[in-house]
Simulated assay, not measured.
Amino acid sequence: MSRAVEGAAELGLDHAAIAALRALLPVTADEVVQAVIDEVPSYEGALSGRMGVTIRRAVRTALSHFLDVADGADTQDVATEAAYELGRGEVRDGRSMDALLSAYRVGARVAWRSLAAAAVSSGLPADRIAKFAELLFVYIDELSAASAAGHADELVVRGRVRERYLEQLCRDLIAGESEEVLIASAERAGWTPPGSLTAVLLPSSHARSAHRLLDPRTLLLEDLPDSTAVLLVPDADREHVLRLMADRSAVVGPARPWTRAASSFARATRARALSEGTLDTERCLVDLVLSADPEAYADLRARVLAPLRDQRPATARRLEETLRAWLLHHGRRDEVAASLFVHPQTVRYRMGQLRDLFGDLTSPERVLELTLALARHP
Rank of each mutant, 00 (worst) to 15 (best):
Val110Glu: 07
Arg260Asp: 01
Leu305Ser: 00
Arg217His: 03
Pro254Phe: 04
Gly87Ala: 02
Thr371Phe: 14
Asp235Trp: 03
Ala292Leu: 10
Tyr165Ser: 00
Val5Ala: 09
Leu370Trp: 07
Thr61His: 05
Ala186Arg: 00
Ser2Gly: 13
Arg366Tyr: 02
Ser64Val: 07
Glu163Tyr: 09
Leu173Asn: 08
Gly49Arg: 15
Val36Pro: 01
Ala20Trp: 04
Val252Ala: 11
Arg283Tyr: 05
Val233Asn: 00
Pro313Asp: 06
Ala79His: 12
Leu244Lys: 06
Val200Cys: 07
Asp360Lys: 11
Pro125Cys: 05
His65Asp: 13
Asp74Val: 11
His240Val: 03
Leu124Asp: 03
Gly52Ile: 10
Leu232Met: 01
His206Thr: 03
Glu81Tyr: 02
Arg92Ala: 07
Ala4Ile: 05
Arg355Gln: 15
Ala184Ile: 02
Gly94Asn: 01
Thr61Tyr: 14
Gln345Gly: 01
Glu85Thr: 12
Arg22Gln: 15
Leu219Cys: 05
Arg113Lys: 13
Asp71Arg: 00
Arg162Trp: 01
Asp127Glu: 15
Val289His: 03
Arg366His: 09
Gly176Asn: 07
Ser275Leu: 12
Leu327Asn: 09
Leu288Met: 15
Asp356Val: 04
Ala35Met: 12
Ala373Gln: 07
Gln76Asn: 08
Ala175Val: 06
Cys284Asp: 05
Ala148Thr: 02
Ala103Cys: 10
Lys131His: 13
Asp310Leu: 14
Asp235Met: 13
Ala255Gln: 14
Arg113Cys: 04
Ala236Val: 01
Val106Lys: 10
Val156Leu: 14
Thr61Gly: 11
Arg324His: 12
Gly123Trp: 08
Arg88Gly: 01
His343Arg: 10
Gln345Pro: 01
Glu369Asn: 10
Asp310Met: 05
Val251Phe: 06
Leu47Val: 09
Ala119Trp: 04
Glu44Thr: 11
Gly89Asn: 09
Arg160Asn: 10
Arg317Ile: 02
Ser209Trp: 10
Val156His: 06
Asp172Arg: 06
Leu327Arg: 10
Asp98Leu: 07
Arg50Met: 12
Leu370Phe: 01
Arg312Ile: 01
Ala338Asp: 14
Arg366Asn: 06
Ala306Met: 04
Gly352Ala: 09
Gly89Lys: 13
Ala16Leu: 13
Leu197Tyr: 14
Asp237Val: 11
Ser363Thr: 14
Val252Cys: 13
Leu372Pro: 02
His240Ala: 15
Glu44Phe: 14
Ser185Ile: 08
Arg348Gln: 10
Thr198Arg: 14
Asp247Pro: 02
Leu135Thr: 03
Val200Pro: 08
Glu282Gly: 10
Val342Asp: 00
Leu374Gly: 00
Val181Met: 11
Ala314Thr: 06
Gly277Asp: 03
Leu135Gly: 05
Gly52Thr: 08
Leu182Arg: 07
Thr278Lys: 07
Val230Met: 09
Ser102Gln: 14
Gly159His: 07
Val157Gln: 13
Ala292Gln: 08
Ser249Tyr: 09
Cys170Thr: 14
Ser178Ile: 04
Glu321Gln: 11
Glu154Val: 04
Leu202Gly: 04
Gln34Ile: 09
Ile140Ala: 15
Phe265Ser: 03
Arg309Asn: 11
Leu213Trp: 05
Pro313Tyr: 11
Gly87Trp: 00
Arg283Phe: 02
Arg283Met: 07
Ala19Phe: 06
Val91His: 00
Pro225Trp: 07
Ser42Leu: 15
Ala296Gln: 04
Pro313Leu: 05
Ser227Arg: 13
Glu321Met: 06
Arg188Tyr: 08
Arg318Phe: 05
Arg92Tyr: 06
Ala126His: 04
